[in-house]
Amino acid sequence: VFVDDHLLEKVLELNAKGEKRLIKTWSRRSTIVPEMVGHTIAVYNGKQHVPVYITENMVGHKLGEFAP
């Protein structure tokens, strides 16, 4: 499973602090992992960042699938 390192670091850091804030990313190719559930990730679609709230059903899919 591929997840960009910088994105995973941000998610794990927020989980350690117990925070839930918006994470901006250009990494549409990253796979959604269970650690991301409950976070809102702003995924770049080529024009703007689209906020995507991550749920359990999204695990295993790519971030780009949810930012048309």
Rank of each mutant, 00 (worst) to 15 (best):
V1Y: 06
V1R: 06
V1K: 09
F2D: 07
V3S: 02
D4I: 01
D4H: 04
D4T: 02
D4R: 00
D4C: 09
D5S: 15
D5W: 15
D5H: 15
H6P: 04
H6D: 14
L7G: 00
L7C: 02
L8N: 02
L8Q: 03
L8D: 01
L8R: 05
L8E: 02
E9H: 13
E9T: 14
K10V: 14
V11I: 13
L12H: 10
L12K: 13
L12P: 01
E13D: 08
E13V: 06
E13I: 07
E13K: 09
E13W: 09
L14W: 03
L14G: 05
N15G: 02
N15Y: 02
N15L: 04
N15W: 02
N15H: 03
A16F: 08
A16D: 06
A16L: 12
K17A: 10
K17Q: 08
G18K: 08
E19H: 07
E19Y: 07
E19P: 03
E19A: 08
K20L: 10
K20I: 07
R21I: 11
R21K: 12
R21A: 14
R21W: 06
R21F: 10
R21M: 12
L22A: 07
L22I: 14
L22P: 11
I23W: 01
I23S: 01
K24R: 13
K24T: 10
K24F: 15
K24M: 13
K24A: 07
T25P: 01
T25K: 01
T25E: 01
T25N: 02
W26R: 09
W26K: 11
W26G: 07
S27A: 07
S27F: 06
S27Y: 06
R28E: 02
R29H: 12
R29P: 06
S30K: 02
S30Y: 03
S30V: 02
S30T: 05
T31Q: 11
I32A: 04
I32F: 01
V33P: 03
V33N: 04
P34C: 14
P34G: 11
E35T: 09
E35F: 09
E35D: 09
M36Q: 01
G38K: 06
G38Y: 09
G38E: 08
H39S: 02
H39K: 02
T40A: 08
I41T: 01
A42L: 06
V43F: 02
V43P: 06
V43Y: 02
V43S: 02
Y44P: 04
N45I: 06
N45R: 09
G46T: 07
K47D: 08
Q48V: 13
Q48P: 02
Q48D: 11
Q48T: 14
Q48M: 15
Q48C: 15
Q48A: 12
Q48I: 11
H49Y: 15
H49V: 03
V50S: 09
P51I: 14
P51E: 13
P51L: 11
V52P: 00
Y53A: 10
Y53E: 11
I54W: 00
I54K: 00
I54L: 10
I54D: 00
I54P: 02
T55Y: 13
T55C: 14
T55I: 13
T55K: 12
E56I: 12
E56Q: 11
E56H: 12
E56T: 13
N57L: 14
N57F: 11
N57S: 14
M58R: 10
M58D: 07
V59L: 11
V59W: 05
V59R: 08
H61M: 13
H61N: 10
K62V: 11
L63A: 01
L63D: 00
L63T: 05
E65F: 12
F66N: 03
A67G: 08
P68I: 11
